[in-house]
Write a protein that binds this DNA or RNA. Structure first.
Length: 481
RNA sequence: GGCGCGUUGGUGAAGCGGCUUAACACACCGCCCUCUCAAGGCGGCAUUCACGGGUUCGAAUCCCGUACGCGUCACCA
């Protein structure tokens, strides 16, 4: 039997990080097997929560992350449709619910909401619905329905005994059937609830490995009772611990936490986001942290998924994103950051040279625009900046160095870094100074800033002869006053 | 409240009864390198694994209890 997993989100307009991680794990579990199949199914049975365009966000996120599904609404497959509302139209769920009734796994229920409410209030914390409709015969129920009665279909739970299952990450879970409630399977609008549609579809779509959040751990016994009533094989379960905002709450939109799209908008790479979230709740057996998706497929092992919630740490994501940025070939990096550089600059610059000084310094794409703006902002500054203890310089030494540098810089037209380096590095020795006593003042003189990305040589090369000399002259004049 | 699950540093975590006086990484702090800032290199950062018992020659690792946290108990998914 081929290994099949699925990612089954609700189109609620937002891809949160915990959800994305579940998708990732489901993908990894499937792809770990050379023949494994990864399916996308849209769970839109709650008509009240549909959000326009939400499905596109799901497709877009999966595509950006490289989580390519083998079957789904947009790519087809043999066990479609892959959108639950379409399956409702086909009558799939109601048919199966009726079959389940005949098999004794469910029953019709005509109770009014108010009856439940009354019982609920009377029972307080002890509430467990004791459904009088359970005792009704099928014939009687069908007669009432024919007469136009409103109904739902509820699961029938054995009053005694226990139900157990083995979860791949949490181990064996056992619960008393008496603690399980008789949940609604088919709502009065004839739509299935998640609890039912999920089980039916997982079976019909041949899902062998169910990967989902651990909030479903306590309802899994109920699902298994349905599988058993139908005589179906129970899948392997892989319940994942939550991704937390802090020790008390999960990462969520309600808390204003970043979604995948928010992180992209903040300048993080999909690869880095995926890499980071893979590490939340799972640890590789080797001592390593940087993984491409393909490498994750190789390294992933369900047995190494943890059991306690992991707090999402934006700082570590930022670091990891920086690593991804730094590890790129310069040309690729240049193409990637070019728009961000140009956004921060009015004039034209050699963006490849700028990219080179940015690469070891920028951790996110967005900070680049700001990092680069200093290139065009040159105005008077305090000469006091030339006093630098560590560089052993002061305005006097600086002036001497700048004059010498000015001479050299005026004599050449070749402003390549190589040439500038060759020329300027002769100066310290000639002047009997340390490198820092010449180059630090020079960098300061052409930027007016205490610190900048890049050094004097790199920056002079970026500015070019005319601009470099213009700034240098300004600074020399300022020092001579 | 019932039921289920969890608890190693500020964070992610390794650890699966002796090799642990608890890896590695982020953050933080030093030092080195260095033309500033980064990047990079090196070092520091839990005498201790929520707490209390027990088992054992030996426990972060096994068992029991307590505390705390999370989840679930919807005609939401």
């Amino acid at each position: 039997m081929t290994l099949r997993t699925r990612f089954a989100p609700s189109p609620t307009g937002y891809m949160h990080i915990g959800n994305l991680r579940t998708a990732l794990y489901a993908y990894l579990v499937a792809k770990k097997d050379p023949d494994g199949v990864f399916i996308l199914r849209i769970e839109d049975t709650d008509q009240g929560r549909l959000v326009e365009g939400a499905t596109d966000i799901i497709y877009d996120t999966m595509a950006k992350c490289g989580l390519k599904h083998d079957e789904g609404p947009d790519v087809g497959g043999d066990v479609g449709p892959y959108v639950q509302s379409e399956r409702v139209k086909d009558g799939i769920y109601l048919d199966y619910a009726k079959k389940l009734i005949r098999r004794g796994g469910a029953h019709y229920c005509f109770c009014d909401e108010s009856v439940l409410q009354a019982q609920r209030e009377a029972a307080g914390d002890e509430f467990k619905y004791d459904d009088p409709c359970r005792k009704l015969s099928i014939e009687e129920c069908e007669a009432r329905i024919a007469a136009g009665a409103q109904y739902v279909i509820r699961q029938s739970i054995p009053e005694t005994g226990t139900t157990s299952f083995d979860d791949e990450v949490f181990g064996r879970i056992t619960v008393e059937n008496s603690t399980l409630d008789e949940q609604v399977l088919i709502k009065s609008d004839s739509f299935p609830t998640y609890n039912f549609a999920n089980v039916i579809d997982d079976h019909l779509m041949g899902i062998t490995d169910v990967v989902r959040g651990m909030e479903y751990l306590s309802s899994t016994p109920k699902y298994n009772l349905i599988y058993e009533a139908f005589g179906w094989d129970i899948p392997r379960y892989i319940h994942c611990p939550p991704v937390m905002k802090d020790e008390h709450s999960k990462l969520s939109k309600r808390n204003g936490d970043a979604s995948f799209q928010d992180l992209i908008a903040k300048g993080y790479l999909p690869e880095a986001i995926l890499n980071y979230i893979a590490l939340l709740g799972w640890a590789p057996s080797e001592n390593r942290e940087i993984y491409t998706l393909e490498e994750l497929v190789q390294a992933f092992d369900v047995k190494r998924i943890g059991t306690s919630g992991a707090i999402f740490d934006p700082e570590k994501l930022t670091w990891l994103n920086g690593m991804w940025l730094r590890n790129m070939p310069l040309d690729e990096y240049h193409q990637l950051v070019k728009p961000y550089i140009e956004k921060g600059l009015k004039g034209t610059f050699d963006t490849r040279k700028i990219a080179a000084i940015l690469q070891p310094r920028a951790n996110t794409l967005n900070e680049i625009t700001e990092m680069v703006s200093f290139l065009e902002n040159f105005s008077s500054y305090s000469n006091d900046l030339y006093n630098h203890k560590k560089m052993k310089t002061n305005p006097e030494i600086a002036l001497e160095s700048l004059k010498a540098a000015r001479e050299v810089l005026a004599q050449t037209d070749d402003y390549s870094e190589e040439n500038l380096h060759a020329l300027l590095m002769e100066l310290p020795q000639k002047l009997g100074r340390k490198n820092g006593q010449v180059l630090f003042p020079l960098r300061l003189a052409i930027t007016g800033l205490q610190s900048t990305p890049g050094g004097a040589i790199e920056l002079a090369s970026i500015f070019g002869k005319e601009e470099t000399l213009r700034r240098l002259d300004f600074s020399i004049a300022q020092l001579e006053q």
